[in-house]
Design a protein around this nucleic acid. Structure first.
Lengths: 212, 212
DNA sequence: TGTACATCAGTGAACGCGCGTTCACTGATGTAC
DNA sequence: TGTACATCAGTGAACGCGCGTTCACTGATGTAC
């Protein structure tokens, strides 16, 4: 896992240590969990001295912020991909499923992302934060709701619908990993069916959804 | 905040240090956040030496478990109370709202509760854990669904509905604190209306709910 | 009722540890002339 | 094209800190006789 082994061959100047540190943090996170994510451990994982990160980040918090930011970008890419691969009503469910799967596949990163968001008391969904090309994950959900029937002029209602969808996905993302739902998943024929069924239950579509 | 001041008057034997430690942990948690919850800090807050807790808990993890356990009990009491104060269809929403309010009022404790649950990969909802008199919070949701029209013999569907409701509440509980929803709350006339509206959106009732 | 003694529940000092951060330094790089 | 030099991006040792845990201890309590 560690990059330290290649230290003897690495030149004195790293090239892109900032990038390497964020990558090392992600590796560490998934291998050891959020509690293992110290600045020293990240430097160690990147094969660099404990003081080196300070040339790229003001302090530990700034490094963590960078990791979280990259997490939100990865999530957005996953959701973009899911949307591109589906059509019609399926898209909204596909977004939700890709969200949950991202959380399942990157649980520690997902935690860091929300920890950072909580510190700022805001999801990274401000217009200024958004990738101008694609918008961001939150806007994507809202736009998809509009594409499938939500009234874009009913702003309050639209935002409510977006929040509801986001809450549903986040709640399910955190719940889906628990062991006691294994038998439910099995009964329904797999994880995918389980997620589908729960989303369906929440009736998140803008109109004419089938209730339960 | 600290109990240390009364140390000179406290007898050598504490009486119920276990209780005092859990209380101190809760106080500390809400005052300083989850990252401040060290075993030494808890002992300090309780006005006792760092070694004293070891007469009541095997290690730090066991103390944290006790704190989390008490959290789940508090949550259950809050939900019981909310259910008792309402009737009919309102009960389900009332349960959700009381859940979210508990998380809002005890954010750090709420975090510790889920951290402990994640470690065990299970919510504390096993029958053996349940208070025999009242069941537990999760069962309460399920029973309330039954009381309001869910078919108790359709086990898979019932459990799905319960999971959906729980996910909705958890998702909203974590989301509701974010700053960027302030204007939404204001537009809807307050936090209570906001929570109502989101829950309504998720259409969690067993039948004939009104969609959006 | 008094006394000996085992047990219980504290104390305080010490352990080793990993942490975030700073500092004087040095090797590599790039630019001005 | 070669050289002087400023700047950049590393090193490694050191700092003080709070942590979880252990240990020999001691004061208080309760029980047997």
């Amino acid at each position: 896992m560690s990059e330290a082994k290649s230290a003897e061959s690495r030149p004195y100047h790293h090239g892109d240590l900032r990038r390497a540190l964020v990558d090392a943090a992600r590796r560490l996170l998934e291998a050891e969990g959020p509690s293992a994510l110290s600045l020293r451990a990240v430097a160690r994982e990147a094969g660099v001295s404990p003081a080196a990160p300070y040339h790229h980040f003001k302090d530990k918090a700034e490094l963590l912020d960078a990791v979280a930011h990259e997490g939100w970008e990865m999530l957005q890419l996953a959701m973009l991909d899911a949307k591109a691969r589906t059509q019609g009503r399926e898209q909204l469910t596909a977004l939700g499923i890709s969200y949950v799967c991202f959380a399942r596949d990157n649980p520690a990163l997902y935690r860091v992302m929300y920890d950072a968001a909580r510190d700022k008391e805001a999801l990274p969904m401000d217009v200024e934060d958004a990738n101008p090309e694609n918008g961001n994950a939150y806007c994507m959900v809202r736009d998809t709701l509009i594409e499938h029937g939500a009234d874009p002029s009913a702003e309050t209602h639209l935002e409510l619908a977006t929040v509801a969808a986001w809450c549903a996905a986040h709640g399910l993302a955190e719940m889906a990993g628990f062991k006691q739902f294994e038998h439910l998943k099995a009964e329904l024929g797999g994880e995918r069916q389980f997620l589908d069924a729960v989303f369906n239950h929440m009736g998140l579509f803008p109109k004419d959804h089938d209730g339960c």
